[in-house]
Each structure stands twice: as structure tokens, then as C-alpha cells.
């Protein structure tokens, strides 16, 4: 039961015709565009989410980039370089989407470097062997795609459009990971062991990557109402497990979850409970690589400052270069 005060409060809220119109657009599955009126909370929530998504792409370059100089064949080297490059591209598309909401990329990057905005916890784990590159492609990109496909229909136009582009480009990422892991698991005993070890280490972090359970997710309900989120964390997690569990069989690799089995009745795979305490620790800053990733990103930013300053100085000195080329 709501008190009278609350009802009155609600009535003043809905009295704003702009908010009504905004919600009506979302409810009729239309897109909100940058110059449309939008509630402050919607804007803030989107900036936070898109920035975090962009940061994840950028920091995500590090664990895989770690193997570019050691890729075991020229073919794999080319694939990995192209993949890590795509991540830079995806980060860029996403920063641009965030910028339509009135923030600048450099502000967001500062917030990342100051530890005030987060990136996906998954990138705080180390890539210890070559098989980790395959496992990331298969599991981490698999989880990312599960999360991203519904975002192509997100209510905010620029975010949805960026995601369409990202998803289109990402279709090769999971495939190359699967292919690489498949080659290992069907290679020598040592290669197979390397692949299994990687899956053992990346399985649970990937399952946790889809976020805390619905019972604990803080932003979910409002994000759903605003059409930013279309499915709950647990729904997405189930979808992810249902996708990768049968693929693991084809790979000949065993996920480290003794409870993973097909449930005929539910029409889904059952699976064990992820260690969300661990997720909280890693998100909180105590994962194996949090400090390393942050220091790397900050150093790259600082090392590049003189270059950006030089380019700006040149543009001022040579306005011709700034005119249409």
C-alpha cells in the first residue's frame, strides 16, 4: 500500500508531459536519440553503462595483446592482431556513443584511470598460456555476445547502432577462439592439457561475467523499464550456458562444473552456483591483474600526452590542414 504522499508524488512526476512522451516512445519500441529530452537518471545510467562497456573493450586488449608477440604461427598472429585491433575499434565506437550524451572521451578515460569507472572484471585475470587466447575467444567473447545481442535493440539509438556494428564485427571473434581451442584440444596430449587448463581457469569468470544474480542486481529493474536492458543477468547466464555446454562436448573439453547437465524438464542446462564472492572481490579491485591493467592503461595515456599535444599544436599552426582536405 502506498501512502497518499507517495501517490501525490507520483502524480507530480507523471505531470511532466516530456517524461510521458519519453516513456511512450520506449514502450512503443522506438529509439531515443541524443537531442531528445530524457530523464537525468536515464542519461547517467547510460553514460555509466556505455563507458564501462567501452573501458572493457580497451582494457580487454591487454590480456590477449599479451600474446601477439608470441603467437605460434603467422596465421594466428594475423588473426590475433586483427582481433585486438577490433577491440580498440569497438571501444572507440562505444566512446562515441557515450559522447552523444554530452561527455567527452577524455573525461571518461580519466575516470577509468582514476578508478572511478569500472571495466568488466573478466579482464583482471592473466593470460598464462597460448590456450588462454582461444578460451577467451570461445568463452569470454561468447558471454559478451550473449550480453550484446539484446543491446542491439537498446532504447538509446547511438548505443544500439554501435552494438550492431560491434556484433557484426565480433562474429569472427568467437569463431577464431573456438577454432584455435579446437586445434589444441585435438592436437598433442600437451596441447590438449593446455586447452583444458585454460578452460578450467576461464569457465567460471566467464559465467560470472554476466553479472551478479538477479536477486542482487542493483540497476536491473530500472534498466529494464527504460529499455536499456532486455533480459535479466540470470536469463542471459542460462542462455550462455545453453550455448557453450554442447560446444564443450565438440571441443572434447570438460567445463569445471560437476553440476553441469542437461535438464530435459526445463529444456535447459543445470549448472553450479558461481562464486559471486570472488566476483565481488575482483570487481572491488583485488583480482590478480587489476593493478597491472590500470597501470598499463595509465602509462599508455601518459606516454601519449606529448604526441596529442604536438598534434593539437600543429593543427593550430596550420589551419589549412584543418580545412577540408
Amino acid at each position: 500500500m502506498r501512502s497518499k504522499g507517495q501517490i501525490e508524488h507520483d502524480e507530480t512526476d507523471v505531470a511532466d508531459p516530456r517524461e510521458l512522451e519519453f516513456q511512450a516512445l520506449i514502450d512503443s519500441d522506438q529509439r531515443i536519440e541524443p537531442r531528445d529530452w530524457m530523464p537525468d537518471g536515464y542519461r547517467k545510467s547510460l553514460i555509466r553503462q556505455i563507458a564501462q562497456h567501452a573501458h572493457s573493450e580497451i582494457v580487454g586488449m591487454q590480456p590477449e595483446g599479451n600474446w601477439i608477440t608470441r603467437a605460434p604461427s603467422l596465421r594466428r598472429k594475423a588473426i590475433l592482431m586483427a582481433k585486438v585491433q577490433d577491440e580498440a575499434g569497438h571501444g572507440l565506437y562505444l566512446y562515441c556513443a557515450a559522447e552523444t550524451l554530452g561527455v567527452d572521451r577524455s573525461e571518461l578515460i580519466d575516470l577509468l584511470d582514476q578508478g572511478r569507472q569500472k571495466y568488466s572484471s573478466i579482464f583482471n585475470y592473466p593470460t598464462l598460456t597460448w590456450a588462454d587466447v582461444g578460451a577467451i575467444g570461445w568463452l569470454v567473447d561468447g558471454a559478451a555476445i550473449t550480453n550484446q545481442i539484446p543491446l542491439c535493440r537498446c532504447s538509446f539509438g547511438p548505443y544500439a547502432r554501435a552494438m550492431v556494428r560491434v556484433c557484426k564485427e565480433e562474429s569472427f571473434h568467437q569463431r577464431q577462439g573456438f577454432e584455435s581451442l579446437y586445434a589444441l584440444s585435438h592436437g598433442t596430449t600437451e596441447q590438449h592439457a593446455m586447452a583444458q587448463d585454460a578452460v578450467n581457469r576461464w569457465w567460471w569468470p566467464s559465467v560470472e561475467m554476466l553479472g551478479p544474480p538477479d536477486t542482487e542486481s542493483t540497476h536491473s529493474a530500472q534498466s529494464m523499464a527504460w529499455g536499456i536492458k532486455r533480459f535479466s543477468n540470470d536469463e542471459l547466464r542460462q542462455r550462455f550456458i545453453d550455448m557453450v555446454a554442447p560446444q564443450a562436448v565438440v571441443l572434447g573439453l570438460t567445463p569445471p562444473d560437476p553440476e553441469l547437465r542437461w535438464n530435459e524438464e526445463r529444456g535447459h542446462y543445470d549448472f553450479g552456483k558461481p562464486d559471486f564472492e570472488e566476483l565481488r572481490r575482483v570487481v572491488g579491485g583485488d583480482g590478480p591483474c587489476n593493478r597491472q591493467r590500470a597501470a598499463h592503461h595509465l602509462k599508455a595515456q601518459e606516454d601519449g600526452a606529448w604526441v596529442r599535444a604536438a598534434a593539437a599544436a600543429y593543427a593550430t599552426k596550420h589551419p589549412a590542414a584543418s580545412a577540408a582536405a
Partner: peptide, 24 residues
């Protein structure tokens, strides 16, 4: 319209656009 990017001047903007938006 495909998106946006940052660049100090027009030439670099064009070059960056080529690298960022026409990789495929």
C-alpha cells in the same frame, strides 16, 4: 553517417576514419 572519432585536424580525421571505419 557511420559514427564519429577524434582527430586534431581534417587530414588526420580522414586518415583515422579510413583506419577505424573501413577495415572490412
Amino acid at each position: 553517417h557511420v559514427g564519429s572519432l577524434h582527430a586534431p585536424d581534417a587530414e588526420m580525421a580522414l586518415r583515422n576514419a579510413r583506419d577505424v571505419y573501413t577495415r572490412r
